[in-house]
């Protein structure tokens, strides 16, 4: 649907791929480290000579990475659907009364410590993946709701006046005008939410979700710093890869129109 802006479209696919260099590089590092952790055994052995086992043995790192991503991804997807949905609803004429309520509810979600959410969710949802998804969802909702509200409310009122005056319906106005114009701000919110949650998801290991938090928790429990380091390195790289991918997306959106 979008046209390339003048002077930016000519270079074609090669340059577009080049623009994704940073996220791709981080992704490559991440996958390489996850797949080849065993090769680094001498390094960790040197770092911690007295321990018998220096590479986290209970699961394959790629599997842990996959599960980590899945948990964060599902939580992010739910948070986007709920967060953007709620923000859109309360900025419609019919839902405007609920705007303060939703803004406050989202803020409260973030003041509630994820550890406490986990503790409360386990009795209801049992051990495993669901409690951490709920905790991440609540924790990640605020930046998305807040940014979607800011994005929608920051649109030049004359643009909305024109949209209405030209005879656009509410849904047309939302989908063709408001959301596209708010996307850069919404994306920034999702980026914050997801990046925070990549780190927070490690907590899931305490309630039996196996993800990149597992080596960290296990390392803490057994006094094995090498495990902690392995989990932390991978989580850090994952956060960097995802964050730089979002940065790219935001730039791309902005340069393909409003700028």
């Amino acid at each position: 649907m979008r046209r390339e802006p003048i002077g930016a479209g000519g270079a074609g696919g090669a340059s577009r791929l080049a623009a994704w260099r940073a996220p791709l590089a981080w992704l490559a590092c991440l996958l390489l480290l996850a797949a080849g952790m065993a090769w680094l055994e001498p390094l960790f052995r040197w770092f911690q000579p007295d321990t018998r086992q220096v590479i986290y043995p209970h699961a394959d790192f790629l599997t842990l990475l996959g599960r980590h991503l899945l948990v964060v991804g599902v939580a992010a997807l739910l948070a986007v659907v709920i967060g953007v949905g709620a923000a859109v609803l309360v900025t419609r004429p019919a839902g405007r009364d609920f705007l303060p309520l939703v803004a406050q509810a989202a803020s409260m979600g973030q003041t509630f410590p994820p550890v406490a959410v986990l503790a409360l969710a386990v009795p209801v949802l049992g051990f495993g993946t669901w409690p951490i998804i709920v905790a991440l969802l609540l924790y990640g909702l605020l930046p998305i709701v807040r940014n979607t509200l800011a994005g929608l409310q920051g649109i030049d009122p004359s643009v909305l006046e024109a949209a209405r005056g030209m005879g656009m319906g509410g849904v047309q106005q939302l989908l063709q005008v408001e959301l596209p114009l708010a996307v850069p701000v919404i994306l920034a919110g999702i980026r914050t939410s997801v990046t925070i949650n990549i780190a927070t998801a490690a907590l899931g290991a305490t309630v039996g979700a196996s993800n990149l938090g597992a080596p960290i928790i296990s390392g803490i429990v057994n006094g094995n710093t090498a495990y902690v380091l392995q989990g932390a390195l991978l989580i850090g790289l994952l956060a960097l890869a995802v964050d730089s991918a979002f940065e790219r997306l935001q730039r791309r959106w902005i340069s393909s129109g409003i700028g």
């Binding site: 030049d156 004359s158 006046e161 024109a162 949209a163 005056g165 129109g257």
Partner: peptide
């Protein structure tokens, strides 16, 4: 009704995207 009536405003209200 509005699609049958042209409407011009001071700040143009052109869609920036």
């Amino acid at each position: 009704l509005r699609r049958r009536i042209g409407y011009v405003i001071q700040s143009t209200g052109l869609f920036p995207h």
